[in-house]
Design a protein around this nucleic acid. Structure first.
Lengths: 247, 247
DNA sequence: TCAAAAGTGTTTGGGTTACACCCATGA
DNA sequence: TCATGGGTGTAACCCAAACACTTTTGA
């Protein structure tokens, strides 16, 4: 039997996939690393978890140090622990993703930060990032795609006031499909989670759209009452619907 | 800036929620701990991850050392890292669950194993277990409940040959609901993932049931073709169906 | 008046639900 | 012959999907 001391030589980090939505594209916030290893390379923001800090706390800290944002949607996804994933020793990393409204975002790069610079990169343009971050990003994106079918998360990525078309474009970006405008509006409005602000877009060169706001209070009330939101769309293959199986 | 050395003083473990199905109940395999901390207390099987071992590998090892089983369904769920969750120092744990057929199971308790004994405990009878294992168990069970709606996992928990009633009882145990017999059979059979073995139950004091087997080859073929299985049942609240929202 | 995006209803098909009685076997 | 669980079909309903034209604004 090995002495337990041999096990207390590891470290762990959190890495945070920060999603934002801008110009019709789903984007991720990447940093240019200001430290070894992978100095100067693009990577997901992340850092070691401090001894007196729990995992969620570390994820919040990483996000806050970089963006100044607190109280945003944050969810743990998966832990990556390949033996040689970090050149400095045994380091496993707990991956989180968060959803922020890019309009709220103010880039904060502290002196001595792990990041030299930070940049929003469209998901499809991400390539060659440090560590196993490509796998982490893929896993988090997949989780987001699933979650968004069952919970009204889209609003986290939009400004307070938004149009239904913006919301639809966001869902299309996340789900990587096209959605039918009329059906989308019917479903979204049937949730009863949108407040019609009785305001209009201004200064657009076409018919202005109505502005809506997410009714967070009502959502939390629904949750408390035990309602389950299932935003799922059915899945098809070759235009043929695949049957559900249970019940 | 702290020296990185300060971070390399932690350890991590895996804990494994091993589900089995027996006598109409969903059960978990618990061990009586043969080591400090929590010596003599019931806990989930788990152990430190060795320096040369990745996380999935450690989960497989823990399972295999205890049950002798390999190649079973195993899925990482969540990582728990509260600062004081382990009395010996900073130890985070990666939680997995696995699904096994209790008929295949042969308890192996090696000398010097971390377990003094092991026992199948019905989910509802689990109480007062070591560490934060209650939270881990809850998280894994929740994951199982979700997964089983979308993937044909039930078969992992049954003997090779089973009856439709056994399968239904299993789903009822996992989902903690009652299911309609006729509708359940219709859906399950419409999956086309069951092989009718043309055999019958024997020695039962009632009309014998047909035996079926899961068609794993066809399932994998379907997966490869991109089919998505959605075994979801709709959710109700007060008998009123809650609308889906997307598309 | 033109371009651009907003906004709006109806029909159809398929899947989910609810529901009750006869069958085969061993005791 | 009785108790026990096995096995089967249909009708109603609801939701998802498909689909096209009019409206409003700024340029």
């Amino acid at each position: 039997m090995v002495s337990l001391d041999n096990f207390f030589k590891s470290a762990f980090t959190v890495d945070n996939v920060i999603f934002g939505f801008d110009e019709g594209d789903l984007k991720v916030l990447l940093i240019k690393r200001g430290e070894q290893p992978f100095l100067g390379k693009w990577a997901l923001p992340g850092y070691f978890v401090y001894p007196n800090e729990d995992l969620d706390g570390a994820a919040v800290r990483v996000l806050e140090e970089l963006t100044g944002l607190k109280n945003v949607y944050l969810e743990q996804v998966e832990t990556f622990g390949d033996v040689n994933r970090h050149p400095f020793g045994r380091v496993i990393t707990v991956a989180y993703y968060s959803l922020i409204n890019t309009k709220d975002y103010i880039l904060k790069l502290k002196a001595g930060s792990i990041a030299q610079q930070a940049e929003w990169v469209a998901l499809k343009d991400v390539n060659d990032i440090a560590f196993d971050h490509a796998a982490i990003l893929a896993s988090c994106f997949q989780r987001l795609q699933r979650r968004v079918r069952h919970r009204p998360l889209g609003f986290e990525l939009l400004p307070k006031k938004f149009t239904l078309t913006q919301l639809q474009q966001l869902y299309e970006a996340i789900l990587q499909t096209e959605l039918d405008k009329r059906n989308f509006r019917k479903k979204i409005l049937s949730m009863n989670l949108l407040i019609d602000l009785k305001e209009m877009q201004e200064g657009v060169a076409h018919r202005p759209a109505k502005l809506y706001q997410f009714d967070r209070a009502k959502y939390e009330q629904f949750l408390a009452e035990g309602y389950i939101f299932d935003l799922s769309e059915s899945k098809k293959k070759n235009g043929k619907k695949v049957n559900g199986v249970l019940h």
